[in-house]
Amino acid sequence: MPTVAVSDVAEGDFLLDVREDDEWQTGHAAGALHIPISEFVARFGELTEAAPQDGRVHVICRSGGRSAQVTMYLVQQGVDAVNVDGGMQMWEALGRPVVDDKGQPGSVL
């Protein structure tokens, strides 16, 4: 499965967060699209509308397990998708910005 390190995700790269609502509200990467894994198949159209047609989708969750499942699904659908290794825990550990649902500094559950 295609995987990238958090450090390989550049500002402006398309990021899909598949964690659940409570995790998202507490802290997420600014600018990420949020579609919980539990709703992903039903809301797949939101991704196809939002994702760049010629760009890569970076999929992230808390630690990498759920995002790996979604990445595999997307690759099977012909989407250029990669799993972000270490997820939001690594994102936060590396000092990347995390905001809550009000745009204030957040934290990762």
Score class of each variant (00 low, 15 high):
Ser63Tyr: 01
Ala81Tyr: 05
Asp101His: 11
Gly87Asp: 00
Arg62Lys: 08
Pro97Asn: 07
Glu39Ala: 15
Val75His: 13
Gly95Trp: 05
Ala10Leu: 14
Met72Ser: 15
Pro97Lys: 08
Glu39Ser: 15
Ala10Trp: 03
Asp80Pro: 02
Asp8Met: 01
Gly78Lys: 10
Arg62Val: 02
Asp13Ile: 07
Ser38Arg: 12
Gly103Ile: 04
Met90Gln: 11
Tyr73Pro: 06
Trp91Arg: 01
Lys102Val: 06
Ile35His: 04
Leu15Phe: 07
Ile37Ser: 05
Gly64Pro: 07
Met90Pro: 03
Pro97Asp: 08
Val99Ala: 09
Val9Gln: 09
Gly12Ser: 10
Glu20Val: 09
Thr3Pro: 04
Pro52Ala: 00
Gln104Thr: 01
Leu94Pro: 10
Ile35Gly: 01
Met72Arg: 13
Thr48Leu: 11
Gly55Asp: 05
Pro97Gln: 12
Met1Glu: 11
Ser7Lys: 02
Arg66Pro: 00
Leu94Ser: 05
Glu20Pro: 09
Val70Thr: 07
Pro52Arg: 02
Gly45His: 03
Leu47Ala: 09
Asp8Asn: 11
Ala50Thr: 00
Thr3Gly: 09
Cys61Thr: 06
Thr48Lys: 13
Asp54Ile: 04
Ala81Asn: 10
Val41Gln: 14
Ser38Glu: 05
Pro97Glu: 06
Leu33Gly: 00
Gln69Val: 13
Gln53Met: 05
Ala10Asn: 13
Val70Arg: 11
Thr26Phe: 09
Arg66Phe: 01
Met72Trp: 12
Met88Gly: 05
Ala51Cys: 01
Leu33Pro: 11
Ile35Glu: 02
Gly87Cys: 05
Leu94Tyr: 04
Arg66His: 00
Gly95Gln: 00
Gly45Ser: 06
Val9Thr: 10
Trp24Ser: 10
Val18Cys: 11
Leu16Asp: 11
Val41Thr: 15
